[in-house]
Simulated scan of single mutants.
Amino acid sequence: MITLWQAALIGLVVVATHLDSQLLGECKLREPVVTGFLVGLILGDVTQGLIIGAQMQLMWMGATAIGPTAGLDIGTGGTIGVAVALTTGSGVESAIMFGVPVSVVMQFVNTLLMALFSGAMAMADKEVDKLNFRGLAMIHWGCTILLVALYWILTFSLMYFGSGIIDTIVNGLPEWVSNGLNGVAALLPALGFALLMKIIMNGSLWPYFILGFVPAAFVGFDMNMVGMAAVAVAIALIIFQIKSGQGQAVQPAVATSVTDIASDDEWED
């Protein structure tokens, strides 16, 4: 059972994830591995909070908003997901079961909130025209207080008043659902990496990805022939890229006629 002050502090963690990149700069407070540590600190199990947060980080590390595509509210989803997993004594499967839907729903809430703030922008423009910086500051802090209050109240209400419902849902899950969620938890990190690589990877970076992946994959194990072959292929690709780059070096132009030579002399004069 979660206590009153624990629910209040978890609400503050969610608020901090939304102040990140707005008032606090780009602190990465919204990342699940950070919120997992903070929630673990609040609930008294830092180790498990970090483990579950890191597992959710692998899942969401490739989730990003590109252009008009709405992203996921990974700050709220990751925080509540870890909190549910720790309070119910379950694993990452419960964190995913609650964290993913919450992240989707709260992204819609954030979109509605930004639409509401667009009205405040018209008011801010009028204050700028009048050079009323005091009024501009009041509009800014008013929007911030509304954001803080909304996310804190929603998170606090869910964690404190809904903890009994959450326990009932988690404990009442049939075995086949738990097994399915475990399978999803194992696959989603691969999906997260695939999304990230889709965004940042191109052909020239593959050898370096292989060189970084192979040592990480064989930590604590003896490297076998597959790993050695992968490293050899990566080194061969890097050498090929270097050789290809040298072969494509631009050669200086050579004058092919008397007219060209004369024109060059004219420019030198």
Results as ranks from 00 to 15, higher is better:
F209Y: 04
L188G: 01
V231M: 14
P189H: 02
L187S: 10
V226D: 12
M228K: 14
G220P: 05
A234R: 13
G180R: 00
V184I: 15
G192P: 00
M225P: 05
A229K: 15
L195S: 08
A190L: 11
V184K: 04
M225V: 09
N182P: 05
F218N: 02
G212Y: 04
A185I: 03
F221Y: 15
L188H: 04
I199A: 14
L187I: 14
L195F: 10
F221V: 13
F193K: 08
L188R: 07
L195C: 11
A229M: 10
N224T: 02
A216T: 09
P207Y: 02
W206N: 08
N202M: 05
N182C: 03
A186T: 07
F209N: 04
P215T: 00
V226N: 08
I210S: 04
I199M: 15
G227F: 01
L181V: 01
F213R: 04
K198I: 11
L211G: 03
A185F: 05
A185H: 06
G212D: 06
G212L: 05
L195N: 08
D222N: 09
P207L: 00
W206H: 08
G227L: 00
A229Q: 10
A194I: 09
G227K: 00
G212N: 05
N182D: 11
A232D: 04
P189M: 00
G180I: 02
A194S: 14
L205N: 12
I199C: 15
A229N: 10
G212I: 02
A194M: 14
L187D: 04
I200A: 14
N224Q: 01
I199P: 11
M225A: 13
L181C: 01
W206Q: 12
F213S: 07
F218C: 05
A194N: 15
D222F: 06
G183V: 02
V231K: 06
A185M: 05
V219Y: 10
Y208W: 12
S204V: 14
I199R: 15
A229R: 12
G212E: 02
V231C: 11
G227H: 01
N182G: 08
V214P: 04
F193A: 14
L205F: 11
M228W: 14
F218K: 00
L205V: 08
A230S: 09
M201Y: 15
V233C: 11
D222H: 08
L191T: 09
V214N: 03
V219W: 09
L181G: 03
A216S: 08
Y208N: 10
P215M: 01
M201V: 08
V226R: 07
G183H: 06
A230F: 13
G203F: 13
P207C: 02
P207V: 00
A234W: 09
V219M: 12
L181E: 02
G203K: 15
A185P: 05
I199W: 14
L181M: 06
Y208I: 09
M223Y: 05
A234M: 11
L196E: 12
S204F: 12
N182F: 07
F209E: 01
G180A: 00
I199K: 15
I200P: 09
G203P: 08
A190H: 09
N224C: 01
V226Y: 12
A230P: 06
P207S: 08
L188A: 01
G192R: 00
G220W: 03
A190N: 12
Y208H: 10
F209C: 03
A185D: 03
L196C: 11
V233A: 15
M201C: 14
G227P: 00
